[in-house]
Design a protein around this nucleic acid. Structure first.
Lengths: 342, 342
DNA sequence: GGTGCTTGCTAAATGGGTTTAGCAAGACCA
DNA sequence: TGGTCTTGCTAAACCCATTTAGCAAGCACC
């Protein structure tokens, strides 16, 4: 086992040339006047020794480390983040980069420390990912360092990648309307009269805007709107049960996320109603859950991986497109049908 | 904005000392004979300038980068990995380290490339995580680099962290037996007569061993064993429906994972049976799913985060405990009760 | 024979730190 | 007075690459 790493000096020595020559040849510098023979000898030597440059050493000189810092508030807690990371990892890999992943839990102190930690390691750029768009406290970052906000925004860093919630919202409504639903649609999870929340923030606001825009465009109004603070199955169950009591004529449920829809499924089953025969359901996120439900839940997916990929591409490309909106895919399963009696 | 980073030379200059002195003082070298005054001046200068050492530069000399490579076959595809990563991130953070996360998709070529990539960056150690224990192809790694296998094993690297599946398996059986179940227990997902699989591998084999050991210990036999190749809800649904037809006297279901249990719930509901009134259910993994089900599913959890943490601790501690088994937590919800008529 | 231009290559500086070897001044000792 | 220690500090080498500046040889040309 070769316990010592092969260095450029080793390559140069084997090729009978200086490290300068070896460096220039291996980096393919164009204007050099080194002979073809020199090129051949160096390449052969590098090949023979299995030479790989020490990135840290190179970075010291070039200030390029082929490394990206990915700082997020939550990694595993939500299913959201891992998709972002996966996408980022893929894009980074195809660009020959590598990703330093840090988690801060949203704590400003840990955030500051995380930024310092990646800066200490000379990363080429930083991606800040959050679960909810918010003004992230970001300590002074050398202006040379490029930054992309992922599923987040920040006044100082205009480059950001977000899901195209508005058209996602429109699509959900369009799906129901196309199936023939008009006056029997209920919204589960949102009621503008009641809610003014910061927590759900920018992206959810856009989702709602898309939904309302599409309803208005079709000249429709919701049969009912159930405000729900916490978008979890239990809450979806309760709200839907309540809704069914008050509005048995409902024909379709537009749920703000899949977990609410899961609760709605249970409430519908308890009420002896079938999906989609009696009631159609559509929701958002494309949680793992959505595929497990019977019948499969049609949902407007959050394009996590695509967003992660896009963020890295943006970071490395260096062009400064302000906001990138990534389209939300429609995942069609079997939870939408024409309303009864049509 | 200070566009240039503060270097050790800056600190030394401000303190009126050499970089040597500054370095020694900031690193708290014990045997040095520098005066108290010198210590004070350097510390004050470092503080005033907000000095942080360049890790890459330091690593060049010391071969320590405070960075760990985390190479896994799958990051986002399974819910498994993100817990491992989160745990690893936490433990790394408290040890002042940072984690380079790479994904290989299980492709040997990408694996080799990933290893090279982290080695190029002089990581202090590497954690290999896989979803299924297997012999991982690992190209020559400098013997100095320490390696820990996470949820995996490898002949060349004895240090590994695994869930304690065997006692987890025992616990699941004990839970049912303690509730009073004896002859009405069915196993969903596994049948030794039928299965000899490599894919599910070592850890699942241990889970099964624990289950069978506990059954034998209590002098019991399964009412039935449903072999299932793919542990997904649909398959669980089918197998359970089938089981109910053949063995209506079943009192408890021991499912190999939560997704199977989810399918079983649906089959039980379709058959008009209630959980846990008519049939008790227990399973493994503590999927996010398990909390959403009604009633909540009692399950033996996979201790992802603890495993990730343990792997990092092992890596950094340097002691060579062979295999670390991390206990699987019992997550008690409401799916187990005494059998009917007791 | 001197000047200038290529061609082919290398010495040395650089990046930011750590570490080894050793210097200078004062104290102690005989 | 000279030798040895101790104290307090620094010069310089080193880690591994990149990059700048420039050398030496060969050739052309007047």
């Amino acid at each position: 086992m070769p316990s010592k790493r092969v260095t450029l000096a080793d390559v140069a020595q084997l090729a009978g040339l200086s490290t300068t020559a070896a460096s220039m040849i291996l980096n393919g510098r164009p204007d050099t006047r080194l002979s073809q023979a020199a090129h051949d000898r160096v390449n052969a030597a590098a090949q023979a020794l299995g030479y790989r440059p020490n990135v840290a050493a190179r970075g010291l000189r070039t200030a390029k480390t082929l490394t990206i810092g990915f700082i997020s508030d939550l990694v595993a807690t939500t299913r959201f983040a891992s998709g972002l990371i996966k996408g980022a990892l893929e894009a980074a890999e195809s660009a020959g980069h590598v990703v330093l992943v840090l988690e801060t839990g949203g704590d400003p102190e840990r955030e500051a420390e995380a930024i310092a930690a990646v800066l200490d390691r000379q990363v080429d750029g930083i991606i800040f990912a959050t679960m909810r768009a918010r003004e992230l406290f970001v300590p002074t970052i050398p202006s040379a360092t490029s930054v992309v906000m992922l599923n987040a925004t920040n006044a100082r860093f205009p480059r950001s990648v977000l899901p195209d919630e508005e058209s996602g919202g429109r699509t959900a409504v369009d799906l129901l309307v196309a199936a023939g639903h008009r006056d029997g649609i209920a919204l589960i999870g949102q009621n503008d009269d009641v809610e003014r929340d910061l927590f759900r923030s920018a992206t959810v606001a856009r989702r709602v805007a898309g939904i309302r825009g599409a309803m208005a465009h079709h000249g429709l109004e919701f049969l009912a709107e159930e405000s729900i603070w916490l978008w979890e199955p239990d809450e979806g169950y309760t709200a839907t049960s309540e809704l069914l009591r008050r509005h048995p004529e409902v024909t379709a449920l537009l749920c703000m996320n899949d977990r609410l829809a899961f609760g709605a499924y249970q409430a519908l089953a308890d009420a002896g109603l079938s999906v989609p025969g009696d009631v159609s359901v559509v929701s958002f996120d494309n949680d793992e859950l959505a595929a497990y439900l019977r019948p499969g839940l049609t949902t407007i997916g959050l394009p996590h991986e695509a967003m992660g990929r896009r963020a890295v591409e943006l970071l490395l490309s260096g062009d400064d497109a302000d906001q990138t909106l990534v389209p939300m895919p429609t995942v069609s399963r079997s939870s939408i049908a024409a309303p009864r009696g049509t």
